[in-house]
Computed example of a mutant assay.
Amino acid sequence: MPVRAALVRAAGRALRLGFRTSAVDPAAVRSIVVIKPCCLGDLLLATPSLAALRQAYPHAYISLAVSSWARPAVENSPHVDALIDCEGFAGQRWLRWSAYRRFVTTLRAGSYDLAIVLDRSLFASLAAWRAGIPLRVGIDSGGRGFSLTGRVPWNQERHETDLYLDVMHAASVPVSVAGQPFYRPAAIHQMFADRVFEEWQLNDRGPVVVIHPGGGSNPGMKLEAKRWPATRYAALADRLVDTVGAQVVVVGHASDAPVARQMRMAMRHEGPDLVGQTSFGQLAAVIERGDLYIGNDAGTTHLASAVDTPVVALFGPTNPTVYGPRSEAGAALFHADACPLRERRALGAVSACPGCQCVKAITVDEVQEEAVRLLQTHVRARRTPTERT
């Protein structure tokens, strides 16, 4: 264990002596705040927990503290009554103390009975304590959750969705909701996808394969080592066009434009390029209409799983056991032996060794094989606008 982590753990154990644990009495809970600042993929992985919370507390007022970056993942959630801005410290390496104090003030003004902290940050759990919230249940990562009244230790390799559900269980929430993330695009976003499919005549030909070659960048972390090479995505796309008649749609955030351009320039076949041209909801609708999604470990990949599209996810150096797709129509490709950090990956901060080559161990042949398998075993009836209404 690194020296810093050992010191934090020891300090947490000492400090927790000043905080008493207590069970949550559902009858005494009328207002709840869930603190999960970042990021898009993590919020999607938390959707089963939000559903379970609403089911357990149908009459409680539930707020969700989230950053503007991750807000699109939950802004239309039927399980949340209000969203609270926690900008300024969410996912940032350095706190903006003025913003943090405003956040604590906002929490205090809410007079919440229960805070559920789905974040490993010391500052997230401390904010609930400083706001005077009597019941505080959350993740205790390496001693950082010392101020919580209900601590769920993060001490084993466990899928992130299941870890969040463990926290819910500690908050007296019966975990009967399936742990599959979900997101449903609004009708207006489905109309956008309809136009894309009509303009490119995607409804009348082979399977639609949506590819996201970017990712690895958000307010809390920049880890471009998670990206499979753009030239390999190009080779894969051309092979799928040649072998199964696939129609390839390239998607991504505006920041993914350089890697998407590199992929497009290396391809022989043309197709829709929607990089930087969609909102979160529009992107979800396009992926939902597709027959298959392929991408790196990124928020867009979690979105594909959340809209129930078959997924081939490419991992390294992050761990698919913790972040991989949950459904039967999801495949995670990963070479654990390619990474010297594999023993730290599950419980330490996600990082990459110098010159990280983990994801590059995945070959084009491997991805093509999984893609074809999913296209053959999970044939989807493509919904037209008429069939949806």
Rank of each mutant, 00 (worst) to 15 (best):
A6C: 07
A10L: 15
A11D: 09
R20I: 02
D25Y: 04
A27F: 03
V29R: 07
I32D: 08
V34M: 03
C38W: 01
A46Y: 02
T47E: 09
L50H: 10
Q55E: 15
P72C: 14
P72K: 13
P78V: 14
I84M: 15
I84H: 06
D85Q: 05
G88M: 12
F89W: 15
R93M: 11
W94G: 10
R96A: 03
Y100L: 05
Y100M: 09
T105W: 07
D119E: 15
A124K: 11
R130C: 04
D140L: 05
L148F: 05
T149P: 11
T149H: 07
R151H: 07
V152K: 03
H159E: 01
E160I: 09
L163F: 01
Y164S: 06
L165N: 08
L165T: 00
D166Q: 09
P181Q: 06
Y183V: 06
A187G: 10
H189G: 03
Q190F: 06
M191R: 14
F197K: 00
E198N: 09
E199G: 00
Q201C: 05
Q201W: 00
P213C: 02
G215K: 08
P219Q: 00
Y233L: 02
T243I: 10
V250G: 05
G252W: 04
P258D: 09
A260D: 06
E270F: 08
G271H: 11
G281A: 14
L283F: 07
A285R: 12
I287D: 11
D297C: 12
T301M: 15
T309K: 02
V312F: 09
L314S: 00
F315L: 02
T318K: 01
T321A: 15
V322W: 02
S327G: 13
A329C: 05
G330H: 04
D337M: 08
C339E: 06
C339F: 01
P340E: 11
P340G: 01
R345W: 03
L347F: 04
A352R: 12
G355L: 06
D365A: 15
D365G: 08
E366F: 07
Q368F: 09
